[in-house]
Amino acid sequence: MKLLTHNMLKSHVKGVKDGYPLRLSASKVELKEVTFNADFVVRMLDRIVWPVLRQTAIEIGQGDNLPTDIPADAATNEEFLRAMHHVLLEVLVLEGELECPETGRKFPIKKGIPNMLLDEDEV
């Protein structure tokens, strides 16, 4: 699971109001180089939730050089775009879990696939 996917996921346990963001803990992380596409990253600037991406990256030890806020010149700031590209697409969480911020329900990640299936009484 890439951190981009994490940015798009929420908890949908019955009764949860927002369920976002899921708290990620990772026990196995792999880094894999992905071709840099500046246009794609620029288009994601106003689409991803930056504080969540940054915080999550920091929590799994991959967010060293990330600024608190998206810089004003982000769209033309290649250094920033490359840093964002890295955390969005090149950090793969293979094993770990996601935790619902409201209920504490844990969703395991195995072989890079988060298991978000709910039990019958959670739907």
Partner: peptide, 14 residues
Amino acid sequence: DFVLADAPWPLALG
């Protein structure tokens, strides 16, 4: 990326 999930799918709207 693959996610194991059921309807109505745990996808945030951004």
